[in-house]
Amino acid sequence: MKETLDHHIEIYDEHECIAKHPILTGKATAHIKMEHYEGLHTKEKGQRIKDVQGLATNDLYSPAPSPKVEQRPLAAYAALEEGETV
C-alpha cells in the first residue's frame, strides 16, 4: 500500500495496483467503488448464491443455516500437537 501525490491510497498485490481510493477527509468515513463488487451476485449453472458471510445458501432471501461440521473436544487437537493419533 502506498500514498500517492494526488492524495490517494494504492493497494498492491505484489507489483500490480489492484485498488486506488481517495484519502478521505472531513466527515466522510467510507468510499465504495461499485466495480469491486461486479459479478458477485451473478450465478452460473449449478452455483449457489452466497449469503453476506460467504456461506452457500439455497435461498437468497432467508438466512442460511450454519454448515454442519464435526465437533471435537479441544483435547483432540492438543493430542495431535503432541504427535498422538486421534
Rank of each mutant, 00 (worst) to 15 (best):
M1C: 04
M1K: 13
M1Q: 08
K2M: 01
E3G: 00
E3T: 04
E3P: 00
E3H: 04
T4M: 04
L5S: 06
L5A: 08
L5N: 06
L5P: 00
D6A: 11
D6H: 08
D6Y: 11
H7M: 05
H8N: 08
I9E: 01
I9Q: 01
I9F: 02
I11H: 05
I11K: 09
Y12C: 01
Y12G: 02
D13L: 15
D13C: 04
D13V: 09
D13T: 05
D13Q: 12
D13M: 10
E14Y: 08
E14A: 10
E16W: 11
C17M: 15
C17E: 06
C17T: 12
A19D: 03
K20T: 15
K20A: 07
H21S: 00
H21W: 00
H21P: 01
H21D: 00
H21N: 00
P22M: 12
P22N: 07
L24G: 02
L24M: 09
T25S: 07
T25Y: 15
G26C: 08
G26A: 08
K27I: 03
K27Q: 03
A28F: 02
A28L: 05
H31A: 12
I32K: 13
K33S: 14
K33Y: 06
M34A: 12
M34F: 14
H36I: 04
Y37I: 07
E38P: 00
E38T: 14
G39T: 02
L40M: 10
H41M: 10
T42V: 07
T42E: 05
T42F: 11
K43S: 03
K43V: 09
K43A: 04
E44K: 14
K45A: 12
K45V: 13
G46F: 06
G46A: 14
R48C: 06
R48W: 14
I49E: 03
K50L: 08
Q53N: 12
G54R: 11
G54W: 10
G54C: 05
T57D: 03
T57E: 01
T57H: 07
N58Y: 14
Y61D: 02
S62I: 11
P63D: 11
P65Q: 10
P67W: 05
K68V: 01
V69H: 06
E70A: 11
Q71F: 06
R72M: 11
P73N: 09
P73L: 09
P73Q: 09
L74W: 04
L74I: 09
A75F: 03
A75Y: 02
A75I: 09
A76V: 15
A79S: 13
E81P: 02
G83M: 10
G83V: 09
E84L: 12
E84Y: 12
E84D: 05
T85M: 01
T85K: 08
V86C: 03
